[in-house]
Design a protein around this nucleic acid. Structure first.
Lengths: 231, 231
DNA sequence: CGCCCTTTTGAAGAAAATCAAGGGCAGTGG
DNA sequence: CCACTGCCCTTGATTTTCTTCAAAAGGGCG
């Protein structure tokens, strides 16, 4: 992106909304007039199944978009919940549309962010056949994503997730998650406690679950830059 | 979309490529200079896991895009294979970019198509906890998608999939797929044989797996129209 | 006819869910 | 200050679901 593009992003009108832990940032059926960007805190996309159980289909960290649905003014077919208290920036749909019309680079950056979301979803499908690997892969994903926004140090990062959350994300019961957490701990691959994840040897963990960060397209020259510019 | 938009789509340069059954239309790592649209035949997105097994992450029917990656000139992080002999139209990236720059409506149509892809992926995750329901849901998805392009009649449609394909798509073994196919047959919900799917009571099948077609955003005013216009 | 691919079925084993119970810890209220 | 309560983590025992292994039957095609 050119300096001009960055300038046009910085010129966008925006406001910050605070959302309490466990509250929806966007709910099912909403037709948001704004595009949202998480500034602080963690959020999660989710849907509720016919039987009442919840499936988390993605995590949103600072710098991530949520509700790009606004771009097409479609109704939300899923919801987004704040996992911690969050600060969320919102930008009017119109402003985004104008910026995209002015600069192909900004449109491309949005596309790239969306393709990354999609790649993450595909990867979740890909890893859904082995519980221990799936959990390890999720940790690798979160490690890579926290690292790129400066929220991981030496294989240690904060992830405000309960085992229930991880279960909802991987499609497993909390009980089984607990056993996989124990397994990873006993194998010396990862220690999870109190929302803190410690990975003594990230390469070992990555090897265990065949993780390659390519699909995340990091360091992203899309999402993060826009978020930083907006911040 | 306006008549003008349709005209600009029809004015795009394109050519048709024929791809044999079981051949890749796009392979892992490709950096396509074209955006592809399936004209005839079925295709599937897939990735290969570390252990060599294959996961199908989506089916592409006539009128569907594949390789929108070209929009951002990123390398393909998955591959697309022809499930039957296919005719695929390809449009130079540049032509798409120009059309999007000229008309916001065309850009929005592309976004809508992409958001639908993403919604399908989320739905696959959502239904991955029960084999019989997952299979039923896949049949409902394919029924709805074939119906909208005029390829389904009275709860009967052609789906050139082996039980191996369905297994790869749902993350189950072919053996287990076979048992679920039998289960649906015995319950009178769906009859699958020889690439032909017969659903005596679509509402019963939909109820069985809690299917709602909303997430597919049909009738799409995006993809199909572009495909029709291009054809 | 014979071959390959796909479907079908059975039996045994592994993976994850379910059911059940107890423990730690933080916040709340007496 | 301490008991109570709610949430989360932990563990064991049992059951269900799916995989794996094995074998055989059907169908299209050279």
């Amino acid at each position: 992106m050119s300096d001009e593009d960055v300038a046009s992003i910085q010129a966008m009108p925006w406001s910050v909304v605070r959302v309490r832990r466990a509250r929806d940032i966007l709910s099912l059926g909403d037709r948001p007039d704004y595009v949202y960007v998480v500034e602080t805190g963690w959020a999660a996309r989710y849907s509720i199944r016919g039987n009442g159980s919840r499936r988390i289909t993605g995590f949103m960290l600072p710098g991530d978009f949520c509700g790009i649905h606004a771009v097409t003014s479609q109704a939300m077919d899923h919801a987004i919940v704040a996992l911690t208290d969050c600060e969320v920036a919102r930008i009017p749909r119109q402003a985004i549309g104008d910026a995209v019309a002015d600069s192909p680079a900004i449109g491309q950056a949005l596309w790239r962010a969306k393709l990354t979301d999609e790649a993450i979803l595909r990867t979740w499908l890909l890893n859904s056949h082995d519980a221990a690997q799936a959990l390890a892969h999720l940790l690798c994903e979160l490690h890579a994503r926290t690292a790129v926004i400066g929220m991981a140090n030496a294989g240690r990062f904060h992830a405000p997730l309960t085992q229930q959350h991880m279960g909802d994300a991987l499609g497993l019961t909390p009980v089984h998650i607990n056993r996989m957490v124990k397994l990873l701990r006993l194998q010396g691959l990862a220690e999870i406690s109190n929302g803190e994840v410690v990975v003594p040897d990230i390469e070992a963990l990555r090897h265990f679950c065949h993780f390659s960060a390519d699909y995340l397209h990091l360091p992203a020259i899309g999402t993060q830059h826009i978020a930083q510019a907006a911040a």
